[in-house]
Amino acid sequence: MIARQQVGLATCTLGEVKNRADLVIFWGCNPRESHQRHQARYSASVKGQFIPEGRKGRRIVAIDVRPTSTTAAADQFIQVEPGSTFETATLLRALVAGKRIGIEEDAKVGGVPLHVWRELAEAIKAADYGVILFGLGVTHDRGHDLNVEELGALIREVNDYTRFYGLPMRGHGNVTGSNQVMGWQTGYPIAVNFNRGYPRYNPGEFSVLGLLAREEVDAAIIIATDPGAHLPGDSVAALQAIPTIYLEPHVNTTTGWATVVIPVAPAGVAAEGTFYRMDNVPLRVRKLVDSPFPSDEEVLRSIKETILHA
């Protein structure tokens, strides 16, 4: 998210991956575990309009710090050292553009011999339509958003030779939607502060980890996310020290300690609305059954109205 504010991101929808991608690089992600139908629907075995052979029509490369079922199923597995995403992407940029580099031919980058990266750079340029699908192994590696910024720069520069795109492997249901909605209503996808009555933005300053670490907030309302599963322990401890309101359809560790627990109808099961896919394609999720409880939308509106009329 932050990275695209510096270099932007060249991307495409998943159907383009399916129909056109002849080179797919899974970088720091393991869709076979975390996004189980991704490869079959969009990115590997699926038959596309211009990749009629499906899996055989694509070259699949996996870059990761450890072997996984995704790396095992790839045509090539490049096992890198943790903390080397930035170096690797930097090197690939130079190799793709044919720039002079400052290391010897027998050197390793990210624990991988230079010639392997040279071959990958050539494969990237030779592809007709390549994509990098990147996951937490990139965004949570040393460097965080700078890794994405550097990958973004690589992707951009490869477009001087061929079509080449990057897609983040976004996790939970509608996290993409939260970026979109915040984007059109506040101008910023994350980390917004309204203390002055208008939106201000500064990740690190106004994002959840920093706010909790510095004890800058004195109450919290958490919606449709389990902080126990997402946040580090000291952040959870900081939440436990302040009044915390929790909207959640299921019992979990957080419902055990939150100051106020409000059960809600699960979205896409007992409440309808819009979800955004990882490639920003919006789809309508449905109400299949009734719930005894209101939806998140209804609860939030009630809270808002209670405050407005107080």
Binding site: G8, L9, A10, T11, C12, Q49
Partner: peptide
């Protein structure tokens, strides 16, 4: 400078 692109299938 910055550039965002999105190819949209079909």
């Amino acid at each position: 400078d910055k550039w965002a692109n999105s190819d949209i299938e079909m």
